[in-house]
Design a protein around this nucleic acid. Structure first.
Length: 432
DNA sequence: TCTGGGGTCCTAGGACCC
DNA sequence: TCTGGGGTCCTAGGACCC
């Protein structure tokens, strides 16, 4: 048995904890550069604001309907998330933190009335953090997720489901008839794992509701769609196929990407941006004690605008896996120089660290040379500690190799060994 | 004028091998 | 017309998630 605990309109709810005057008003939280809406209050949803709606398309609602827009404050949301998660953990013996606002709780061995227990946990979270949650319970993760959707929808739209399902919905406690009626009243697109594409295909095939999907033959689903959808069908039928991921597994890739506030055309600001991306990505990498074997860099023009299109990426294999910002930056910047071409309005770029390994693998098996040895590793630790203490971006390495560029700092003048300068291998440029 | 930033998994198809 | 039959590994791209 699983529960899914999910904060309602999470970012908006976090903001409301500190600005109670926002209660009852239509509120959205905007992405970076205030580009688009990434969280909406119920009132904003009522106004028809879609998830991901560009701000310039909905800003008129500020005047007409008092829509309030806030710039995202991710450190705050992360902090609130930690508090909610630790309270949600009280629901059962195991917890998988699935996203910033959601966690699955394994209920194996928990006795008593699960619905009542969930009610108490929900109340405690609300009282201690100010964040309202929905809790869904089911025999599989997919059913718990669905139950959570029903709990939240029943609260927001009182006519959609029976009132008892509001806030807490335990699908495993329903009679067969009620369960059927509930699943039949829910659109197939609400199922975890059924997105826009598959949803449309299912509807074309006459599968409209969750009940329709749950009744399908798994083997048929597998041959006509995929093993992924087959698992979903089995889970809807109560056959657990997706286990609880107790401890967070190390990331297999780490990305740092951003849209630019205004388009970039020159190489220098692009290099500057990519240097920062590498710094952030490398920090995440060191936090999980990992090493990267490849670095990918990309840049592109806006897909929403007319004009010359540019969309390139390059993957640079490293001779040795590393977590050293300078070495990663060196590879990334050489990549930038190779894909860069003047004459384009670049709106987004990013860095991805690929083929990640745990760092103990290398230390046991390879001899580190001086540039990647203990001194460099301690320098990186100091860098991370300072940035943690004084805020992200307090200190970063100067970009290497751009004559006359500003913000030079220590690393650039360092002695270089052959390995240092040839840590990545040359490969052809990928063009899309 | 203005459109987020992360991730994961699966599959198809090509390269290469015997 | 017809052009072996498997394997494995890698990559690109699709689809999904929050």
């Amino acid at each position: 048995m699983f529960a899914l605990v999910d904060g309602n309109n999470f970012y908006v709810s976090c903001e409301r904890v500190f600005r109670p005057s926002l209660q009852g008003r239509p509120v959205v939280v905007l992405s970076n550069n205030d580009g688009c809406a990434i969280a909406r209050s119920n009132e904003a949803k009522e106004l028809g604001v879609a998830m991901g709606a560009p701000w310039f398309q909905i800003r008129h609602l500020a005047e007409s309907d008092g829509l309030v827009a806030l710039s995202a404050n991710f450190p705050l949301y992360g902090d609130m998330s930690d508090r909610v998660m630790s309270l949600a953990a009280g629901l059962g013996p195991q917890q998988e933190i699935y996203s910033i606002d959601e966690s699955f709780v394994g209920l194996h061995g928990v006795r008593g009335d699960l619905t009542e227990r969930s009610r108490r946990v929900r109340d405690r979270i609300l009282q201690w953090t100010g964040i309202p949650c929905g809790i869904g319970i089911g025999t599989t993760k997919t059913l718990a997720k669905l139950a959570n959707h029903i709990a939240k929808t029943a609260e927001r739209k009182p006519t959609s489901y029976p009132g008892e399902m509001s806030q807490i919905c335990n699908l495993s406690a329903l009679s067969a008839q009620t369960l059927e009626a509930t699943l039949a009243a829910t659109d197939v697109g609400e199922v975890w794992g059924v997105g826009r594409r598959i949803g449309a295909q299912l509807r074309d095939a006459g599968v409209q509701t969750v009940w329709d999907l749950a009744r399908m033959d798994p083997a048929t689903v597998r041959s006509r769609w995929s093993v992924v959808l087959e698992r979903t069908v089995l889970e809807l039928q109560g056959v657990p196929c997706i286990g609880l991921d107790d401890e967070p597994s190390p990331k297999k890739e780490i990305a740092s990407t951003r849209s630019f506030g205004r388009p970039i055309t020159d190489l220098a600001p692009l290099i500057e941006a990519v240097s920062e991306f590498v710094g952030r990505a490398a920090e995440k990498l060191r936090k999980q004690s990992g090493l990267a074997s490849q670095v990918l860099v990309f840049a592109h023009t806006s897909p929403h605008r007319t004009g010359p299109r540019f969309n390139r990426s390059i993957t640079l294999p490293l001779r040795r896996p590393t977590a050293d910002t300078a070495l990663l930056a060196q590879a990334a910047l050489s990549g930038v120089r190779r894909i860069y071409e003047p004459g384009y309005q670049l709106t987004k770029a990013g860095v991805m660290l690929l083929d990640l390994l745990p760092d103990h693998v290398q230390q046991g098996e390879l001899n580190l040379d001086q540039d990647t040895g203990p001194d460099r590793s301690r320098l990186m630790s100091a860098l991370d500690a300072l940035n943690f203490r004084y805020g992200k971006g307090t200190l970063h390495l100067a970009s290497t190799g751009v004559p006359g560029e500003s913000r030079q700092w220590g690393m650039r003048q360092e002695r270089r060994t052959p390995n240092y300068t040839t840590n990545f291998m040359e490969i052809p440029v990928a063009r899309a």
